[in-house]
């Protein structure tokens, strides 16, 4: 087991190191969520004037939860880009050759993704607080919100890891990103689910991201809803995606 952790630690270290020393990777992963926060919370705040829009902490908090969870998911996605790049450059092959416990590679990338997102998540939170976000939830409820983010990050990282390892080319980037992006935006991003109509309401209703988002918003507002469903969903996703990532790793091993 210690070999597993050694591999994981090495891979995670490298992933963090690459992020920190390369502004081209670091800056977008911080700036993008901030920008979404500005564009959504700032630009669309009038939407909360729509009749029946009811979220006591206000629109900034409403959008903060989305951006927070989105940045968690994209922290995982960006790691997938890095994996794909590693396979393109041949570095991953060396990793496969030298790692005694290869599943540690997946864990390492996932830990790297988590550490990276912690930075982004902190920045986004500080920005939202500066912008005057109201926080009504209790400490333990906020902890729950962070837990949702961590689980989201993990699920996305596993997904990205699997796709990147199956495809092993930088072109995999679009394929990693698109489904995550679409899934996130097919949740009730701008208004609560109840205000959506038509096909988007039907889709959002079925979207597994919806309960996560609603749970997060509930926790921040101090009136939790669907928290159990959200965590159960994320745990299920993480399990399935772990299997998927391991299959991806196996396929990469087979390809040599």
């Amino acid at each position: 087991m210690s070999r597993f952790f050694n591999v994981a630690r090495g891979v995670a270290w490298r992933s963090i190191h690459n992020t920190v020393v390369n502004p081209a990777i670091l800056v977008p992963s911080i700036v993008f969520p901030l920008f979404f926060l500005i564009a959504f919370a700032g630009g669309l705040s009038r939407i909360s004037d729509v009749p029946n829009f009811n979220y006591p902490p206000g629109y900034t908090a409403f959008q903060f939860v989305f951006v927070f969870l989105q940045s968690a998911a994209f922290g995982g996605v960006f790691t997938g880009f890095a994996i794909a790049r590693d396979f393109d450059s041949g570095f991953a092959r060396r990793l496969l050759l030298s790692a005694p416990r290869r599943s540690g590679i997946i864990a390492g990338y996932a830990i790297g993704a988590l550490l990276r997102w912690m930075l982004t998540g902190t920045v986004v939170t500080i920005a939202a607080l500066i912008a005057g976000m109201n926080v009504n939830g209790s400490g333990i409820q906020l902890f729950g919100l962070i837990g949702l983010g961590v689980a989201m990050n993990l699920a996305a990282a596993l997904w990205a890891c699997g796709v990147a390892m199956f495809l092993r080319t930088e072109q995999a980037g679009a394929l990693i990103q698109m489904p995550v992006f679409v899934l996130l935006f097919l949740a009730p991003v701008y208004v609560p689910l109840s205000l959506l109509t038509g096909w988007i309401h039907a889709v959002a209703n079925l979207n597994p991201v919806t309960p996560v988002l609603e749970a997060g918003r509930g926790l921040l507002a101090g009136s939790p809803v669907k928290v159990a469903i959200a965590f159960a969903g994320l745990a299920g996703a993480a399990m399935l995606l772990t299997a998927f990532a391991r299959r991806g790793l196996a396929s990469a091993e087979k390809a040599g």
Partner: peptide, 16 residues
Amino acid sequence: ILFAINGSALSPATRI
């Protein structure tokens, strides 16, 4: 895709 999603997801805005 963005047009499809936001065209529906933001349609409550028409009630502003």
